[in-house]
Structure formats: structure tokens, C-alpha cells
Write a protein that binds this DNA or RNA. Structure first.
Lengths: 270, 270
DNA sequence: CAGTGGTCTAGACCACTGG
DNA sequence: CAGTGGTCTAGACCACTGC
């Protein structure tokens, strides 16, 4: 019993916190209490961002990480739990914990919420992607603002069409910041088969982690009508997306125009 | 040390599981291992559904519940954590854990994702709700299917318009199963100021917990154009929602038509 | 079989709330 | 101040995976 008590007194919350406090920013005046697992989570995020573990790879075991950060398995676990809840990590019992990736994702399109009206989306083959255009431009004021750039900064603009069962259904305009995506060409985009975000991961070390979408109903203009083979002023679902990497840095602006006569945008609320 | 070992052997996972296994359904052939905290979660759900604690009320403390279910605080905590993650409970440090409600919700409209284009939605006053119609009908095949009823079952149909800053922006058709909402009238709907789901909670003991939405772009028809003061065939965001109570029972079908020239549907992906 | 994540416990102490 | 949720630990054992 005495032995047990001694242990508890040594390994209580305060002493453990001190052990890691040296790793956190000094708190000038602000108390800003931050639990241990939060600090660990931040450190893990930095490792992810720095590319210490690549998408799809396994990270060290809970015990190894707990030892590395000098915390208990429980605390390490809580940190991983949160990263897992944020879809940055994926746990697999008996195998390990892996860095989330857009490649081998169970659902091919993690961010595409358009599904066929007929329930079974498994009957639907993979989308046919066709690159229409891809060129280097300079950021307009609007694009610069949304991508956190300056007006005139280099930007890569692409346009593509996705068809389901041969029917053109989605028209997308995509803007990418020029620096991180230096070297991306229409050819590279066209020849790649698979989710675009998977290509971003492997070729440019850019991992899309989160996105915000603004959805509106708009009438199709002339260009859209031509490309999608529809009458002018057909109502389209306009989906404006900004996708972020780690640290909430915007890395893509995408304006999608969805034909919703055989498909719909599915959303869950809770 | 011997004392400690003895305790651990008594209070290990297996013996604790047995203590609660009597509360679970017998597992015919299927191993179907279910962790303790999951079983507790199920029991909590039943209490919530039975109305043992009303929306807005505090539930017993973690320790009390842990005692009641004969589990450790840690396990009880994990059960509550999950219910909290599902938005069924709300934890407030130092005060207690409360049953989630649509009334005193920090965000007035938990399920309404339409926000003004100009960032600051605080500048926008509360929506003006106007009931256009409310009558008892019999379920069509389509409505019956979506609400899990039989064709011809009694259904309450309502129509209303929401205006922001005096501008009619949302037109909604709502269908409710007749039995649980027996006694709901146009007058009651019209005189109530506040979220409709809050009224459902207090007057009919129906708590909306989850919803699925199908979103499309459609041209406005004649009726919609008149009610929203717009040209015919103006593109509208068609939002078809099915809202569920506990146990995934559908309790509302709602078809909303949103004008998206000054507002947009905001969605977060991760 | 060893290694990984997943569950459970007991106990201590911290942070926040309100009387 | 007592009561609540929140954090942390140490240690045990279970379930799953793959060699």
C-alpha cells in the first residue's frame, strides 16, 4: 500500500504537466490552462505537418508515443482519439494507427457529397474525369482573398468535367496557389486516375484535411450549358468549396456546378 | 502489493461485464461483443426516450450514474461522452450534464444551415415566421414511405414562409405523422414564437435528434414564385429533410425551398 | 505467439460553478 | 465551501491481426 501511495504522489497530474510544460509556449499573463493531451495533440499535429509520417503510413504504437512524450498510455490515447475524430488519423485494431489519406479511402470521394437518387451508389461506376483546361494565371482580388494570397500572385486554374455513366454531371473550376503546386500540369492531371486530393498528397505533400462549402442554386450560363449539354438557365447547384491543410491554411478554391436531376447533395445533420 | 493484486483480480473487465450482461439481449449464436460503456449508452438512451429526464434538465452526476449502473466513473464517463458527441447530452463543467434541447440552444436554429452571405449573421434579426396553411390529410404513398407510415394514415401538413429583414426567403412544406402530433393546429403554430422543434419538445414530447437532407437545384413553380415574390423558374435550393427522434424513428418530412441570392447553405466537411 | 488497439478499474487531483 | 465535470496515472485484461 505504501508503495502504491508513493507512486501516486510521484505521478500525479501536476508533476506530469510540468514535465511537458517546457514544450509549450510561455504563457504571458494568460493562465490559458491546457490539458496535457491537448499539448500532445499539438505536438502530433506538428509531426504530421512536418511529414514525419506520410499519409497511409503507420505511426508508432500508443505505448511508444506515450514513452516518447513521457505520459501515460491513457493520455496518449486521448490525444490520438481526438486526432482520429478529426479524421487526421485512422485506428485499426490489432494493426496500428495510420495517417489518414485520400487514396485508399474506404469511400473514394471523402469530400464529394453528390450521390445518385437511386439509393445504391455502388451500382454507379467510378466517375469519368476529363480535364478541360489548365493554365497559370494571376490571382484576382477575390481569389487572393479566399486563398490567403496577394492580388497578382501566381495561381493555377483548372477546369474539369465529371461524368457518371457517360452523362456529364459536374463542372468544376479549381484554383490552386502557385507556389505549393509548382510543376502541376494539365498532362499530369489528365493522366492521373484517382481522387485529385490523392495526387496532391503524393506529388506535392499537400494533405486536404477540412473544407467549407457554400451552396446556392444558380441558372446555368452559356459556357456551362454547352459543357454539360443542357439548356441555358437550367438550375444548377453551385458549390463553392475552400479546402484547408493542417493549421487551417487554405490550399484550394473550387467552384462546382452540379446537375441535380439524377443526383442530389446528401447531408447529415445532428 | 498483494492487496492491490487482489483488487485487480476482483474488479477486472470480465467480472464487471457479467454484472451487466443480464441487462443485454441474449446473444443467439452471434458473439457480438459489446463493451460495457456501449451497454450503458443503450440504457441511457432508453431513459432519455422514456422521458426520465426532460430536455433542458440535468441528469444525475457521473458518480451517481456510475453507482446506479455498477461501473466505474471512467466507464460511465465514456458512455456520457458518446451521448454528448451525438448531441443528445450537453456537458457543462462545474454545473452538470443536461439533456440537449432545441429551445435554449446557443445557436437558435440547430438544423437550419442557411446563413446570410455577409459574414456576420448576428446583424440579422430573428426570422419572421408566417404559417400559410395547416391541414389534416392522408398520407400519399411517397409520404407514407418516408415517414414510415402506411398510405392513407393521418398526416398533418403545414406550409410556412420565413422572411429575413422582411424579405421572404424560405418556403417550407412540412408533414408530420398524425398520431404523435395529435392536437397540433395552425393557431398553435402561428402563436408560438421560437424554433418549431422546441414546441415539439414541450407540447408533444417529440425530440428531433438527427436529420438527413437531400439538396437539389430546381426552378420555382407558379405557387412558389407567388409566395416568394420572384419570377417563375427562378432557381431555388430544394432541401428535403427527414428528421428523426431517438431510435432513428422518422418524425418529420420537410421540403424547403431556399432563395439563395442573399443567403447560402453552409456546410463543413472533414 | 507477440504486438497492436480497446476496455475497465481505482484513485488522486485540478478547474469550474454557485451558494 | 461542496459538488460537478475534466484530467491523469498505473495496471490489468480483452479482442483483433498477422507471423
Amino acid at each position: 500500500m505504501i508503495d502504491t501511495m508513493a507512486k501516486n504522489e510521484q505521478n500525479n497530474q501536476k508533476s506530469s504537466t510540468v514535465a511537458v510544460d517546457t514544450l509549450t509556449a510561455p504563457d504571458f499573463g494568460a493562465p490559458a490552462f491546457s490539458p496535457l493531451y491537448q499539448q500532445i495533440k499539438t505536438l502530433m499535429l506538428q509531426s504530421l505537418q512536418a511529414g514525419e509520417w506520410k499519409p497511409g503510413e503507420a505511426i508508432p504504437s500508443e505505448m511508444d508515443l506515450a514513452t516518447r512524450f513521457r505520459v501515460s498510455q491513457g493520455t496518449m490515447r486521448k490525444a490520438i482519439d481526438e486526432l482520429s475524430a478529426d479524421n487526421l488519423l485512422v485506428r485499426r485494431q490489432g494493426k496500428g494507427t495510420f495517417v489518414a489519406t485520400h487514396a485508399e479511402s474506404h469511400v473514394q470521394y471523402r469530400f464529394l457529397k453528390l450521390v445518385p437518387d437511386a439509393g445504391d451508389q455502388n451500382t454507379e461506376g467510378p466517375a469519368d474525369r476529363r480535364i478541360v483546361a489548365c493554365k497559370k494565371i494571376r490571382a484576382t482580388a477575390e481569389i487572393a482573398k479566399l486563398l490567403n494570397l496577394r492580388t497578382g500572385d501566381p495561381v493555377l486554374q483548372a477546369q474539369r468535367i465529371l461524368s457518371f455513366a457517360g452523362v456529364p454531371t459536374i463542372l468544376e473550376d479549381i484554383w490552386l496557389p502557385g507556389i505549393p503546386f509548382k510543376g502541376l500540369t494539365a498532362e499530369r492531371l489528365a493522366q492521373y486516375h484517382g481522387p485529385m486530393y490523392a495526387l496532391f498528397e503524393t506529388e506535392f505533400d499537400v494533405r486536404m484535411v477540412r473544407a467549407v462549402e457554400k451552396i446556392r442554386a444558380v441558372p446555368s450560363d452559356e459556357e456551362q450549358s454547352l459543357l454539360l449539354h443542357i439548356e441555358q438557365k437550367t438550375p444548377l447547384l453551385c458549390v463553392e468549396r475552400i479546402a484547408f491543410t493542417y493549421k487551417d491554411i487554405p490550399m484550394e478554391l473550387r467552384k462546382g456546378y452540379y446537375l441535380t436531376d439524377t443526383h442530389h447533395y446528401r447531408n447529415e445533420l445532428s
